[in-house]
Lab assay of single mutants.
Amino acid sequence: EETYEVDGEEQLKKVEKMLRDRNLDVEVEIHNGKFVIRAK
């Protein structure tokens, strides 16, 4: 499992696309105004 923490939606979209391109399962949560992306 990998976890990424990003600020802002633009970064979120980039990271999310990169992970989905690797066929990973992606979950996004918001913690303290930051996006936390978990990939399995």
Rank of each mutant, 00 (worst) to 15 (best):
L12G: 02
D7C: 15
L12S: 06
K17N: 07
R38D: 02
M18Q: 09
V28H: 00
V15L: 14
L24V: 06
V6Q: 02
V28I: 13
V26H: 04
V15R: 01
E16C: 14
R20Y: 08
V26N: 01
E2F: 14
R38T: 11
D25G: 08
E2Y: 13
N23C: 13
I30Q: 09
E29V: 12
M18S: 06
F35K: 02
M18P: 03
T3A: 09
D21S: 09
R22D: 05
K34L: 06
H31V: 15
K40D: 04
E9G: 05
E5G: 02
L19R: 00
V36H: 06
T3Q: 09
E10C: 15
E1V: 14
R22S: 07
E10D: 11
A39W: 11
V36N: 01
E10R: 04
K40H: 12
D21H: 05
E16F: 14
D7T: 12
M18H: 06
E29H: 12
G33D: 06
E1D: 12
E29N: 07
D25Y: 13
Q11G: 08
D7A: 10
K34R: 12
L19G: 01
E16T: 15
L12I: 04
D21Q: 05
F35T: 05
E29Q: 09
V28D: 00
L12R: 10
H31D: 05
V6R: 02
G8A: 06
E10S: 06
N23S: 08
N23H: 12
K17A: 12
H31N: 08
Y4V: 04
I37Y: 01
L24D: 02
G33F: 00
L24R: 04
E1G: 11
D7S: 11
Q11S: 10
K13S: 08
N32F: 06
I30H: 11
N32E: 10
F35Q: 03
K13M: 09
R38E: 03
K14T: 10
D7P: 04
K40W: 14
T3G: 05
Q11L: 13
K13L: 10
R20Q: 09
Q11I: 08
A39G: 08
Q11V: 09
F35E: 02
V6S: 02
V26T: 04
R38A: 04
E5R: 08
L24Q: 07
A39D: 04
V28C: 13
K14W: 12
N23Q: 09
K40V: 13
E27D: 09
K17Y: 02
F35R: 01
E1Q: 11
V6I: 10
R22N: 08
Y4W: 14
R20K: 12
V15P: 00
L19N: 01
V28S: 01
L24T: 02
E27F: 13
E29K: 08
G33H: 06
V28R: 00
H31A: 10
I30V: 12
L19W: 04
L19K: 00
V6L: 07
K17L: 07
L24S: 01
V26G: 02
E9W: 15
I30R: 10
Y4A: 03
K14G: 03
L12A: 14
V36D: 02
K40A: 06
E5H: 09
M18F: 12
D7R: 09
V15D: 01
E16D: 03
H31Q: 11
I37R: 00
E5L: 13
E9S: 04
Q11D: 13
F35W: 12
R20G: 06
K17S: 09
Q11P: 03
H31M: 12
D7E: 13
E16A: 13
M18L: 11
D21M: 07
D21T: 01
A39T: 11
K40C: 12
V15G: 00
E27Y: 13
V26Y: 15
K14V: 11
Y4R: 02
Y4P: 01
M18E: 09
E1R: 09
E1H: 11
E16S: 11
I30F: 14
K40I: 12
V26M: 10
L24C: 15
K34N: 03
K14Q: 12
V36K: 05
E5I: 15
M18V: 04
L19D: 02
I37N: 00
K40M: 06
D21L: 07
K34F: 08
